[in-house]
């Protein structure tokens, strides 16, 4: 974490509000550290990478994941209940004909526990506005050029629903272990702004 901006006016205003809340007994400084530690421990893209690797190697798991991800995640010791409320996860599978990409046009809904902290661009009005109207152009900005014949489906998350993309397994990976496959997956691959 950077302390670069701690002399900024907003940093001072945040500290001031914290002090008031502490004085009123509504906030405990240790509580903030606990929240941040829990967040850092639970929200990791490595979780999403493991889910994808299992789906690539276990057809039964893949079917259960696509059918009801919340039911399938506990098989890997994961759940969608780690945050402030339980959300329904929908895993959308890329195929030869269809490429999926996720967004939250209203705010920043995102499966944090599986993808880690969301990047600023995902929360930016530029991405949220444009990916629904010009998905092919936005994917090209990320360096992903899809054949004209590939259909692009854009999934808009909301307060109750989250989405994660199941990328296509790359060719020539038949000999890789599940851990080796997980190492190929990227955060942007789970959002859909990259292939794997």
């Amino acid at each position: 974490m950077s302390d670069d901006h701690d002399d900024s006016p907003i940093a001072a205003r945040v500290r001031e509000l914290e002090a008031i809340l502490e004085e009123k007994g509504l906030l405990d400084p240790r509580e903030l550290d606990q929240v941040l530690e829990a967040f850092a421990a639970k929200a990791s893209p490595a979780n999403g990478f493991r889910v994808v690797a299992r789906a690539w190697t276990d057809d039964g798991f893949r079917a259960r994941l696509l059918d009801d991800a919340n039911d399938a995640l506990p098989e890997l010791g994961l759940s969608m209940g780690g945050g402030l409320q339980v959300q329904q996860l929908h895993v959308v599978e890329n195929t030869e004909d269809v490429h999926n990409v996720i967004v939250c046009t209203l705010c920043s809904c995102y499966p944090l526990s599986l993808l880690g902290p969301s990047p600023t661009w995902y929360k930016s009005p530029a991405y949220r506005a444009r990916v629904v109207s010009h998905p092919r152009e936005v994917l090209e900005q990320f360096g992903l050029t899809l054949p004209e014949s590939t259909k692009i489906e854009v999934w808009d998350a909301n307060a109750e629903s989250r989405y994660m993309v199941l990328p296509r397994r790359p060719g020539g990976t038949e000999d890789l272990t599940e851990a080796g496959l997980a190492a190929l997956v990227t955060r942007n691959g789970l959002i859909g702004t990259a292939a794997v």
């Binding site: 974490m1 901006h5 701690d6 900024s8 509580e31 902290p117 990047p119 530029a126 444009r130 900005q141």
Partner: peptide
């Protein structure tokens, strides 16, 4: 809203106060 700008190797928070706002 202009082009989508991707920051490579972006940290979860860009300043300590952002983490404090999230935790608060």
């Amino acid at each position: 809203f202009g082009p989508v700008l991707e920051e490579l190797d972006e940290p979860p928070f860009h300043a300590d106060w952002e983490a404090h706002v999230m935790a608060m």
